[in-house]
Design a protein around this nucleic acid. Structure first.
Lengths: 204, 204
DNA sequence: CTTCTGACCAAAATTCTAATTTGGTCACTC
DNA sequence: GAGTGACCAAATTAGAATTTTGGTCAGAAG
């Protein structure tokens, strides 16, 4: 069983450095110090090996989210911290960021499908997290799958496309956005008017 | 000046049908019934002509948003109707949907830049709309540019990537998402607990 | 037997080159 | 001055030649 581990280790390194398309089975075999045929004793194809490695990534993503949770802290504070941890993870995890680059640069179908699979898993996980919030009575009843998807995409879009183009966002900016848009909602409640920092109530 | 109009009309038709890369200056000239040199009397390059046509699209997008507004109706109802109109517009407007397809299929740089320009203009427009809401006292104070960006991206993502993969969304689903996530916020307020449709307050 | 190897193959990707097409120009016509 | 279209360098395409790649399998190793 030591051989299988060596193959997985080599595959992880290769996919992380060269992406899906840029990695060859020969390369993995060489890196693992085994023959090419040996790989096929454990995995039926390059794509199967790749998808096996993706499962590792998915597990790690969850761990990153969970590691950001602080026991006893406010539900939404924890959720926001988790979302930020997910964003951080994308930059830190070599294989993930390589796949993102590969899709952008070459549009490799397998890499694209892989990222979609990861996103799907993360959305599922987030949805379950939200569902727990609903059952705890802190989150409004809603289509948690849809909300999870929107949260993830919103964070990704803001950090990837907004921030670089229109000036960087501080953690505080992001947290304020999260609270004011998603948590409290955009509608200004009557009783909040005075607290909004407007000195007088006179409106044009 | 009739000649310039003929050129613009031909350019619009050509870009709409063949995209940026697929359209040639000869083609536009033929379609407009003028010589190629004539085009260069009015536009310094293919790209300049293309960007001129984009300004038309941007104006039309705004009109589509405004046409969806109902005088006297609730601000957020109008906003949601406007967002849905923007989504509709993308599918209906030939040049816009062709550019989206071109970017997906070939990744043409000019088409990508064009779409970004349109998005930027729409976000600016939406941000001003939100700012008016803030001044009217119906929208919470916030970074309207960031919120406008998030709203547009959220709607696009849901309709383009969520809905096709996980079953279609009715207008009602979308409106509920909009209200519960963006307008009222995800946080369940104390007084709402009873109204949420849960018969008794007992929670496991 | 099972575990593993590496030469081998068809298919896919890449490279090289010739031929075509394209955006843009300009001497010329009207 | 407004408009034309032959013309050009540069970019794109076409397609054959070559290399690389995922996957196989007869046989070595244990």
């Amino acid at each position: 069983m030591i051989m299988r581990d060596r193959i997985e280790e080599a595959a992880k390194r290769a996919f992380s450095e060269f992406g899906y398309k840029g990695t060859t089975m020969d390369q993995i075999a060489r890196l693992a110090g085994v023959s090419k045929g040996a790989i096929y004793l454990h995995f039926p194809s390059k794509e199967a090996l790749f998808q096996h490695m993706l499962r590792d990534v998915i597990a790690k993503v969850r761990e990153a989210f969970e590691a950001a949770q602080v026991e006893g802290d406010d539900y939404f504070r924890n959720l926001e911290r988790g979302l930020r941890a997910l964003m951080q993870f994308r930059g830190d995890h070599a294989m993930l960021s390589k796949l993102v680059q590969e899709v952008r640069q070459f549009g490799t179908a397998e890499a694209r499908a892989g990222l979609q699979e990861i996103e799907g898993a993360v959305v599922d996980y987030l949805a379950r997290h939200l569902q727990r919030g609903v059952e705890l009575g802190v989150v409004r009843r809603c289509r948690v799958d849809l909300v999870a998807f929107v949260l993830l995409r919103a964070y990704t879009a803001v950090l990837r496309d907004f921030s670089p183009a229109r000036g960087p966002l501080s953690e505080e900016d992001l947290y304020q956005l999260f609270i004011s848009v998603f948590v409290d909602g955009l509608r200004l409640k009557e009783r909040e008017t005075a607290a909004e920092g407007r000195p007088t109530g006179e409106g044009g």
